[in-house]
């Protein structure tokens, strides 16, 4: 479904954020990308939809190679990749409905979107999605009136209304409390299952990742250090990814299913 071949990114400052990353994500697989800050997690996700231009290497989404696309074709392919952000990245001064509908911008022309005359089918779908995440009654609220968890749900709706094949999720829980974090992660994973979506979830909370995903990729200094099931994250593996630390508490919390989280 998604294939990265020798993907590299070197920033103008000379920092090499990605070193020849090879990755294959099959249809419908949810994988977590873990690693210390600065390991290149965000860069990797942004290189896939070219919010950051990769320096070299190839990205295949299905049969289409993304890195060589013209800007018009890139726009068309971006519609197939929904993105969810760390700080929600909602347009604060627009209503919840407008934020959700902005996920359809790739499908409607400029003037229709400018005048907010989206097709009725899009509006129906927006209501269905808001209903699904439990925010139907909030459709008319302005985005900045919502709490963090609610905003992230709107962000999820915006990504899903694109009708994507792949979700790119950048630290979805970094600004949320532990309970909301779990709810959001659960919601994302459920929705991926319902719709058969593949997802790359970039997350720094190892315990949370282990709880919800089928596959974990460990990134360190822009290179893949670990690729396997969540059970494979032993203290030794975490040490190679993050460096020396006492990892017992982090791993234990996987078995511990209470709502109190023990992290690092």
């Amino acid at each position: 479904m998604l294939r990265l071949e020798k993907l590299e990114k070197t920033y103008k400052t000379g920092d090499q954020a990605l070193k020849s990353v090879q990755l294959l994500v099959p249809e419908g697989q949810v994988l977590a990308l873990i690693g210390p800050s600065g390991a290149g997690k965000s860069t990797l996700i942004r290189c896939i939809n070219r919010l950051v231009e990769p320096t070299s290497g190839k990205v295949y989404l299905g049969e289409v190679e993304l890195t060589s696309l013209s800007s018009n074709n890139l726009r068309r392919e971006r519609r197939r990749m929904g993105m969810i952000f760390q700080e929600y990245a909602l347009v604060e001064r627009l209503s919840v409905m407008e934020n959700v509908l902005s996920g359809r911008l790739g499908y409607v022309g400029f003037w229709r979107s400018f005048l907010r005359r989206f097709p009725q089918s899009d509006v129906d779908e927006a209501f269905r999605l808001l209903e699904r995440v439990g925010l139907a009654h909030m459709a008319d609220k302005r985005a900045d009136e919502l709490s963090g968890g609610q905003r992230q749900r709107v962000g999820i709706c915006r990504a899903l209304i694109q009708n994507p094949a792949l979700l790119l999720v950048d630290e979805p829980t970094a600004s949320l409390d532990p309970k909301t974090s779990r709810q959001i992660m659960r919601l994302i994973c459920e929705l991926c299952k319902e719709r058969g979506l593949a997802a790359i979830i970039n997350i720094h909370d190892v315990a949370l990742a282990q709880m919800f995903v089928q596959r974990v990729i460990g990134l360190r200094f822009g290179a893949i250090e670990f690729d396997g099931p969540p059970e494979g994250l032993t203290p030794e593996v975490l040490t190679t990814i993050y460096g020396e630390e006492d990892w017992e508490a982090t791993i234990e919390s996987v078995d511990d299913d209470s709502d109190i989280m023990v992290t690092k």
């Binding site: 919010l51 726009r75 990245a89 604060e92 001064r93 911008l105 790739g106 915006r158 694109q162």
Partner: peptide
């Protein structure tokens, strides 16, 4: 806030749509 612009760009919006949805609401006040 550049992340709002990024988010609109990531949906496959055109340059003008990014302006209308990502930038204009932020500078309106």
């Amino acid at each position: 806030d550049q992340t709002q612009v990024e988010a609109i760009t990531a949906t496959g919006a055109s340059r003008w749509q990014v302006m209308a949805y990502g930038i204009v609401p932020q500078i309106l006040p």
